[in-house]
Amino acid sequence: MHKKNIQTAGKSLKEAKKALIMIHGRGADARDILGLASHFKVAEYALLAPEATNNTWYPYSFLAKPEENEPWLSSALGLLKDMVDDIIEQGIPAGNIYFLGFSQGACLTLEFVTRHAQKFGGVAAFTGGLIGDKINLENYSGDFNGTPIFIGTGNPDPHVPIERVHDSVHILTEMNAKVYLQVHEGRPHTISPDEVEEANRVIFK
């Protein structure tokens, strides 16, 4: 199971008016994803990055049958729920909680917020989509109430098919998210400067 191993940076939760949960990809760690913060307009935010046990949130592809990724997937989703609850208890409302994830972390980010849709501050998902061999609409409920969600991806991407990205965008939009999608043709599995610029423009403004 994932332990509550959370690295922090930026302002403290007591000082900050906004919090950003940053979720690393497979094989990376909390410090890696916190290292991206300097590229985003988050100097006044409390930054929190959970770290996955053995540096992976779930063992198989996000397109595997969900039961194949258990119990790790449920543990990861539960950890994020605990983090959100803790941040709200510290006095920062959900409307000022933001999320950023890359690759496996982007998939986990999108899966979590869509299972708990409400008015969040914003979401930046760099190369990700909703999780499962097929999308199970029964998992998702709530109303994003205009939450801005940025998704950037390459096409083709070795891990995230563009079809799953488009299907995810459709569901998020149906749940009243304001989705901004950027597709970069032929781009490798990375975060591009264009994506950083757009995320700053629509999410971290």
Score class of each variant (00 low, 15 high):
residue 175 M to P: 04
residue 110 L to Q: 06
residue 171 I to D: 05
residue 158 P to L: 04
residue 163 E to V: 12
residue 189 H to S: 04
residue 171 I to T: 02
residue 156 P to G: 08
residue 129 G to S: 15
residue 92 I to Y: 04
residue 172 L to Q: 10
residue 186 G to I: 13
residue 153 T to W: 00
residue 103 S to E: 02
residue 198 E to R: 15
residue 181 L to C: 13
residue 141 S to D: 07
residue 191 I to D: 08
residue 125 A to R: 10
residue 175 M to R: 08
residue 191 I to C: 11
residue 93 P to Q: 04
residue 122 G to N: 09
residue 107 C to M: 02
residue 88 I to L: 00
residue 88 I to Q: 13
residue 156 P to D: 07
residue 116 H to R: 07
residue 135 I to W: 00
residue 86 D to N: 12
residue 172 L to G: 01
residue 139 N to G: 00
residue 117 A to R: 10
residue 84 V to W: 01
residue 189 H to M: 10
residue 147 T to Q: 11
residue 149 I to L: 06
residue 92 I to T: 02
residue 193 P to W: 09
residue 191 I to A: 11
residue 145 N to F: 00
residue 151 I to W: 07
residue 111 E to S: 03
residue 138 E to G: 12
residue 150 F to S: 11
residue 168 S to P: 06
residue 114 T to R: 06
residue 175 M to I: 04
residue 129 G to D: 08
residue 145 N to K: 15
residue 107 C to Q: 00
residue 168 S to N: 09
residue 151 I to A: 04
residue 117 A to P: 04
residue 85 D to S: 13
residue 121 G to S: 13
residue 85 D to N: 15
residue 182 Q to K: 09
residue 140 Y to A: 01
residue 173 T to K: 08
residue 109 T to V: 06
residue 177 A to F: 06
residue 98 Y to H: 14
residue 161 P to F: 02
residue 164 R to H: 08
residue 160 V to H: 05
residue 127 T to I: 10
residue 121 G to D: 12
residue 175 M to H: 05
residue 141 S to M: 05
residue 168 S to F: 06
residue 198 E to V: 14
residue 124 A to V: 03
residue 152 G to S: 05
residue 175 M to L: 10
residue 89 E to Y: 07
residue 120 F to H: 10
residue 119 K to G: 05
residue 110 L to E: 03
residue 139 N to Y: 06
residue 143 D to M: 01
residue 163 E to S: 14
residue 127 T to V: 12
residue 148 P to V: 03
residue 147 T to P: 11
residue 116 H to A: 03
residue 86 D to H: 12
residue 188 P to C: 11
residue 197 E to M: 13
residue 89 E to D: 14
residue 128 G to E: 05
residue 114 T to I: 07
residue 126 F to L: 11
residue 111 E to W: 02
residue 122 G to F: 02
residue 113 V to D: 00
residue 185 E to V: 09
residue 191 I to H: 12
residue 98 Y to G: 04
residue 130 L to Y: 05
